[in-house]
Structures are given as C-alpha cells and as structure tokens.
C-alpha cells in the first residue's frame, strides 16, 4: 500500500514535470533552442494566480484564466524581444540570452513580490479519496494533476496531428526554409508555439504550487531544470517523449527518495538520466540522427 501511494504521488509529480517539459520540447522542436526562461514563466504564472486569488478575491477559474493570458502574453513578448532577433545567431548566443531572460524574470519577481515565500492558497480543495478501507489515501490535488495531464496530452496530440496550425508546426520543425516556401508564416507559427508552451506553464504553476504551496522567485528554477531533463530523457522535440519522460522522472524521484535516500533524491534522478542517455543517446523516443558525409 505504501508503495502504491508512493507510485501515485510519483505519477502526480511526474505529470507536473511532463506539462512543463511540453513547453521545453515544443520550443526546441520548432525553434531549436533551449528556452531556459521557461521555468520562470511558471513562477510568474503562479504569482499571478496567487495575486488574483489572494488580493483580488477572484474565483479559481477566473484566476487561472488571467494567469494563462498573462503567461501567454509574456511568452510571446519574450520571443519577440529576445529570441526573434537571434534566429540566425549561434545556439550558444540564444542560450545565454535565455539565461539572461531567466535572471530578468526572477529579479523582477523579487522586486515586485519580495523574497519572502508566499503561502499558496489551497484552491483545488476537493478532499481526499480513500481506497482499500482507508489504507490508501489519495489527495484530491494528486488526482486532479494526473487528470489534467491526461487531458492536455490528448488535446495537444489532437491539435498537432489534426489542426492546420499543428500541421504548420510540424512543417516548421522539419524544415523552416521549405515551410516558408509553402506559404507557412514561420513567425506566427513560432509565436503560437511559445504561446501554447507559456499557457501550459501557468497550468503547471498552479498544479506545482497546489502540491508544494511555497511560492518564491526561485520556485520555477529547479522544476524547470528537472522538466528540461525530462524532455531530454524522453527525447527532446518529441511530445509523447516529454510526457513519458516527465512521468518516469517523477516516479523515479519519489521512489528513490522513499526507498533509497531522501538526501540523494536529485542525484538518483540525474544518474538514471545519464544511464538512459548512454544506452539510448537520443532519449527514449527521440529519433536517431543520421550523419551524412
């Protein structure tokens, strides 16, 4: 029973990683860049929800909607101001700019909301479910997180495979030049990708802070790094890969902390990542790249 409970918690934590990892992997697939500021967009989204619920006393759906809108606007603005001028630059230059963006967001949040951790309001207050005669207690947040993850996964897969915009995204990720020749607006497509990733970041922020209700300017960085790891774990650029990688990473982290050592939880996660990459150098679901001479 303890194992089952740990497993459920792991899947729940992994679902959060998976939703964040989607943002990394979609942007990587299309713009071929590591958007290190993504973790901080989560933090901003969580702060907006906190403000909406705490100061303005808005109901939960309105708060989430506002946070998603703000995050989306933020994501598009970052892309337009900082990444778009660098589309022809080296990948390292873009990486450093993304890191600068991450510092910028963290320090702006520090100035606006201060360094003291805020206690995130308990919004998903729906009680717990008890199974097997009270032996297995699953918290409401845990279930919601897993459900939301499944909904997002299905919706996103349908969007990418069925809609016109999804088709455009697949084209741009395969060959930007050819896509442009076929009449696809590359700039809009990239902006839409950033918008979706950032809107998902706000959802991830809500779920993350509902499970771990301490909110401070650095809240986004560690989950950001872990989710990035998850994206690579599943094969960066692949959407099912991000899902699989995120969930597996969460399960490994919780089980590792429970059965091996609490202090070494992060080390176990990263060690598993290294082993997987050594066996499959492009991640679990990543396509091997053929080298042409």
């Amino acid at each position: 029973m303890v194992f089952l409970s740990n497993l459920v918690n792991g899947v729940s934590l992994g679902s959060i990683y998976a939703i964040i990892a989607l943002g990394y992997t979609m942007v990587y697939g299309i713009a071929k860049m590591l958007n290190f500021a993504h973790g901080d967009v989560i933090m901003v989204g969580a702060y907006i929800i906190f403000c909406a619920a705490h100061y303005w006393q808005l109901p939960f759906p309105a708060a989430l909607l506002i946070a998603m809108l703000v995050s989306t606007a933020l994501g598009i603005t970052i892309e337009k101001l900082a990444y778009k001028p660098l589309r022809q630059a080296t990948s390292l230059a873009v990486l450093i700019t993304a890191i600068g963006m991450s510092y910028l967001l963290q320090n702006t949040a520090l100035l606006i909301w201060g360094a003291n951790p805020k206690v995130f309001p308990d919004m998903l207050n729906i009680g717990s479910i008890s199974l097997f005669g009270g032996q297995l207690l699953i918290k409401g947040e845990t279930l919601i997180t897993i459900l939301v993850n499944i909904v997002i996964m299905v919706a996103l897969t349908l969007f990418i495979s069925r809609s016109r915009m999804g088709k455009a995204m697949r084209c741009v990720s395969e060959d930007k030049g050819a896509a442009e020749l076929m009449g696809i607006n590359v700039n809009t497509t990239i902006s839409v990708t950033f918008a979706i990733g950032s809107a998902l970041a706000a959802v991830a922020g809500l779920l993350l802070c509902s499970s771990y209700p301490m909110l401070q300017p650095t809240t986004g960085s560690m989950p950001g790094i872990k989710a990035f790891t998850a994206a690579v774990f599943g094969g960066i650029g692949s959407i099912p890969g991000a899902m699989l990688g995120g969930v597996l990473l969460g399960v490994i982290e919780i089980l590792g902390k429970a059965y091996i050592s609490t202090e070494l939880g992060d080390a176990i996660v990263f060690a598993v990542l290294i082993i997987v990459l050594l066996v499959r150098p492009t991640g679990l679901l990543g396509k091997p790249v053929r080298e042409k001479v």
């Binding site: 900082a82 001028p85 230059a93 890191i99 600068g100 510092y103 910028l104 520090l110």
Partner: peptide
C-alpha cells in the same frame, strides 16, 4: 541584478545584430 540581466540580454542582442 535586474540591471545585470538587462545588460546581459542587450549585449547578446547587439553583438549578434
């Protein structure tokens, strides 16, 4: 640190312009 972040971004943008 905010100024540092902005300087960093500006330098990257200008040097790659």
């Amino acid at each position: 640190m905010l100024a540092y972040a902005i300087l960093l971004i500006l330098v990257m943008l200008l040097s790659n312009n």
